[in-house]
Write a protein that binds this DNA or RNA. Sequence first.
DNA 1: TGCAACACTTACATTGATGTCAGGCTTTTC
DNA 2: GAAAAGCCTGACATCAATGTAAGTGTTGCA
Lengths: 123, 123
Amino acid sequence: MQAKEAAERLGITQRMLRHYEKEGLMDVSRTFNGYRSYSETDLRRAGRIRDFIATGFSTREIRAMSACLSDEGSGPCEGGIEKLTEKLMHIDRLRAELDDKRNAVLERLATLRNGLSALGTDP
Amino acid sequence: MQAKEAAERLGITQRMLRHYEKEGLMDVSRTFNGYRSYSETDLRRAGRIRDFIATGFSTREIRAMSACLSDEGSGPCEGGIEKLTEKLMHIDRLRAELDDKRNAVLERLATLRNGLSALGTDP
DNA sequence: TGCAACACTTACATTGATGTCAGGCTTTTC
DNA sequence: GAAAAGCCTGACATCAATGTAAGTGTTGCA
């Protein structure tokens, strides 16, 4: 498929798609006229790149674990697991704190409701 | 504590710590001589900021959900849960694919080992 | 007292991801 | 076959996160 459709399906701009290519993250074939032609495989790869970037990885880091980008599980995906696990730790820490906070708010709300019902406002 | 120790304990540079402050993400008190003085609370806050940034959030986004940064669960942490959940989706997608890949490699290894043992190489 | 270590501020430099615009083909459509 | 819409390349612009250096005050130890 052509650039426009690919970008739309991925929810990113053509500019970003070209960027991935120029950064050596993917290799897109061209039709006779020079237009890029994205295969479904290309799409999936680009989708992974998009996710990696959205998760705070740089193209440099992503390039370093390019085995993590192909459909084929051909390589041991050098370092990929470790790096991702690290990111996951960051997320997990944040999420745990957010959850605590959310629970605190919920509790406060519950207490408030209890207080009200204790006053006989509720059956 | 002073800047150096704070930075070391957080595993980041003083420069970044100052950056958080200038970006309005945190407010650090000073001692009489003008030196920054980080409290444990400050450290925790800075740690969260560090994690948010490491997870791909911009200072702009973080500022927008500053309620997620305080120790106190005083606010509903506007938007924080949603944004984090979104990031989590990105990570989860990647991790699922990585896990698949890792399993494929493990399986291949297992098959290989089986093949060898079938040859009687193993007791 | 004087040096070493640390702080502070300000300003410029860099790197990365994206946006945007220009100039020039190709394809489609009326 | 001419206009409209898509694609391409390349250059320049921007914003954010960091690095780094310059110039200066402070603290502490020998």
